[in-house]
Simulated assay, not measured.
Amino acid sequence: MTEHKAWKLNGFIALLLAMLLTAAVVYLFISLHIVAGIMLTILVVIALTGITVVQPNESKVITFFGKYIGSIRESGIWLKVPFSIHRKVSLRVSNFNSKTLKVNDVEGNPVEIAAVVVFRVIDSAKALFDVDNYEEFVEIQSETALRHVATKYPYDDFEEGGYSLRSNADEVARELARELQERLAVAGVEVIEARLTHLAYATEIASAMLQRQQANAIIAARQKIVEGAVGMAQMAIAQLEREGIVELDEERKVAMINNLMVAIVSDRGAQPILNTGSIY
């Protein structure tokens, strides 16, 4: 089912014609042309059954004896096919806030997640005839897509280049919007935006996972500190030798590197010991 325009006529013109026909009916009855007056009255009533009003950002889906004959999107008063039935579909932008779902991430950790989906109907025929209830369809498919996307990523990942739900919210939101659009296209719905509104570890593992996060963060920070310390030690020895300040043998280089590494890597301030010389 695909939306197309329905036949329509300006409603004000139709009302004007109805008023003229009503005046003619009155004249026929006065002049005792009863049969002609009755027939014309029936014609006026039939025409008035086709009058409909379309509000801004609204679509009227027209069916005639069970057959879809088109939709009216232009706001105003219109004359449609008489005896046809119209159903209203809102074209306004809508929000859907999902419930907080408990799902397992790619590593099997239970997490709580929720999202908001911004959408609108772009095909009123699909929204009415291809699904039973498009608003309920959006709700169910949004939660299904959110569960599926959440299982593809870990909650957190300290490794470089790895995507995670917490650190890559924009990428996860784009993935969620893309999957939602694929699921909701059958209902004539366009997904404008999808964003995570809640993300947390499940309460039963929140404390343990917080300790794990802290441990991973400390390890990652230590790796950076060690890399920097090695570079600083190499730079210090190279600069001393290049400028001829002091000549160091291999044993003293090892001692100097050891002192520098201890001073830089230590999580506390270094306590220097000054060598003032020997009494002998």
Rank of each mutant, 00 (worst) to 15 (best):
A47M: 15
R120G: 03
E136K: 13
G66N: 00
P56Y: 11
V116A: 12
K8W: 03
E74H: 01
N104H: 10
A23L: 12
F65P: 00
V118E: 10
S90L: 07
A14Q: 01
V26R: 06
V81G: 02
P82M: 10
T100R: 15
D130E: 15
F129W: 05
L9K: 08
Y134N: 03
S98P: 04
G70C: 03
I13F: 14
V89E: 00
S84V: 12
Q55S: 12
L9G: 08
R92P: 04
N97P: 02
G70F: 04
N57A: 11
V93M: 04
V131T: 06
I42K: 07
I13G: 09
A125V: 01
N109Q: 12
G70Y: 05
Y68P: 02
N104W: 04
K67F: 14
L16R: 09
S75G: 07
F137G: 02
M39D: 09
S84E: 09
H33L: 13
S124Q: 05
F137Y: 07
N104K: 14
V44P: 12
N57R: 11
V118C: 07
D123A: 02
N10L: 10
N97F: 13
S84W: 10
F65M: 11
V121G: 03
Q55W: 09
N109G: 03
A24R: 08
F64R: 13
W7L: 12
Y68V: 04
V117Y: 04
Y27M: 14
V81E: 14
A24D: 03
V93K: 06
V138S: 13
F65V: 08
A18Y: 06
E58R: 05
A24P: 01
N104I: 05
M19S: 14
T100E: 13
G70P: 02
G50K: 02
E135K: 14
V118I: 14
F65C: 02
E74L: 04
N109Y: 08
S31R: 12
V121Y: 00
V26P: 04
Y27E: 15
A125F: 00
R92A: 03
